[in-house]
Design a protein around this nucleic acid. Sequence first.
DNA 1: TTGTTTAAGTGAAAGGCTTCAAATTAAATT
DNA 2: AATTTAATTTGAAGCCTTTCACTTAAACAA
Lengths: 337, 337
Amino acid sequence: MGPITMATIIDVAKRAGVSKSTVSRVLTNSGRIDADTKKRVIKAMEELGYQPSRAAQTLRNKKTKLIAVLVPRVSNHFFSTLIQGMEREAVKHDYQIVLCNTGNDPKKEYNYLKMLENHQIDGLILTAFRNPVELIQQFSSFGPIILVEEYTKDDIFPTITIDHQEAAYKATEHLIKLGHQHIGMVNGPEESIITKDREKGFLKALETYHIPIQEKWICFESFGIQQGRRYIQRVLNNDFYPTAVFAGNDELAVGVIQEAKQQGLDVPQDLAVVGFDDQDIATIIEPNLTTIKQPVEQLGEKAMLLLIDTLQGNKNISKKKILETKLIIRESCGMRV
Amino acid sequence: MGPITMATIIDVAKRAGVSKSTVSRVLTNSGRIDADTKKRVIKAMEELGYQPSRAAQTLRNKKTKLIAVLVPRVSNHFFSTLIQGMEREAVKHDYQIVLCNTGNDPKKEYNYLKMLENHQIDGLILTAFRNPVELIQQFSSFGPIILVEEYTKDDIFPTITIDHQEAAYKATEHLIKLGHQHIGMVNGPEESIITKDREKGFLKALETYHIPIQEKWICFESFGIQQGRRYIQRVLNNDFYPTAVFAGNDELAVGVIQEAKQQGLDVPQDLAVVGFDDQDIATIIEPNLTTIKQPVEQLGEKAMLLLIDTLQGNKNISKKKILETKLIIRESCGMRV
DNA sequence: TTGTTTAAGTGAAAGGCTTCAAATTAAATT
DNA sequence: AATTTAATTTGAAGCCTTTCACTTAAACAA
């Protein structure tokens, strides 16, 4: 049975026999305070179970200790894992995460930019964006905006990402070194810079090894199992089709494998497949998926740390950080582990 | 180039030629206001791009429009889907979600209860709890606490859930009707009331159909693929083992299937498996998993709605809501769709 | 003693909103 | 025209912190 209403700073001040300014100063660790006084104040706080009112602090400081995280789809394994990493880091520094599922709706995104302006959140982490870069940039005067996985030309925002191009190159090269000459790519949505990067890496590998490029086999789709199925259906419809496919993420890859198998092809015998992300499903699909592993939780953690560092004015922080990826070889390309 | 600082209620009042109380009244839609005045005020708001300061409102109203959602593990597909449903409903009513990944740590849970007391959040949704019910209950005087999926004896908290027992009964009955007489169950963690329910349903089905119960085949594990594998390893170690397994969730089921196959058993020929949840992986594992489908997003939505209704004082709300589950028959039990 | 310096602590204002009692204005009634 | 009644509007208080400019007390020097 605690008191029905929370103790305020005044209660603490009275109990400790000091003014509320003094209490505030111990709270914020600012100014000189007599050691004894400090002890007394802290004791009073404990006895009252005092917790400063976040609401009042927010009004005064214009800081909420809230960080918004925007993802296109929470239930997507990649994003939920990212979020998990962010949350872990955030709580370490006494921040909370406000979650937004944008569904790629520019308006929802915009609302959160407005929240930044309105001091409802201290900072923003984007994993994709659907508003013009210039517009988003305008809001960064109200608080830090950080990009994860995605990034922009000229590195306008601080970013944590991977080298998409290099990763795609690795994946494609793997297929080539296994002897494939006919390689297709089913990529993610066209709007995004990272899918373009992955395409670049793919094309670069083909060029490097003098493999002819078949435009027909290169498609943009949104990330999803169904989209992977559709892709391979379409491609198999011609009598000339690839012996290997690089998929923009694991879900696309799973779709490709499932549909290929259904059409009577043997994976990897008739069709080799590489994915991207290394989600759970990579080890559930048969054959197990060879794929690019991204350090997803780490991406989240680093992004959050970067944001918080920025918020706290730490100056020794780099604007862009590239984390390492790794090709995980399993069975979907015809090599046994 | 907007003004560098946000317009306040006073700016609006000046521009509309009224007092700030009047502006406030149109903002909150309270009290009688002359239609013309209202129009003028609204116009002024628009012209200034006015947005009320959440911080000030919070301080004044002791309402943050923030709802905390606690889950053991965000990256788990079940929870992230749940969250997605919640978010959708929350934004409809102008609420935001604050996310907490508890990792089953009672202390993290406790911190959020404290936040409720401190008016940092308006309400709380729990999907599991690790503090004593009595303790949690004490905090409900500070704001609504809602349970999803989980629930408590005597329905202490408003709850959205499914009939776990009935669902487990359905699943088990399905196995029995296919002719199985030797049925095991790998269940979720023992602490939870819902795993006990599922066990009850399982046992009831066995009883009803006069199937002998083999204690050895009934185990509690935490939800995970590895745990499923371990279970079936252990069970297969004896020379007398089940021909069918009911798994507490799809991940356990996938583990069971993978390990069984690896040990040379044919699924469903030698071992039939039913899962629980109907996650993505259910249609990726081979054979595709027969499982109980929970309306996960809906659980999230309804829970959020219940919470918000409570917050807004709507009185015609039921304390407990049971959503329907469905047995999805695929191939892991030996029936072709 | 008087004056100066340093340390410790305080009062008041500001931050932006909502609400209540009181005041003002308009409309209705006698 | 005077009085009631009803419809609008307003000023001020309060929500809880933080911070800045000051005051008080103590220590030291001249």
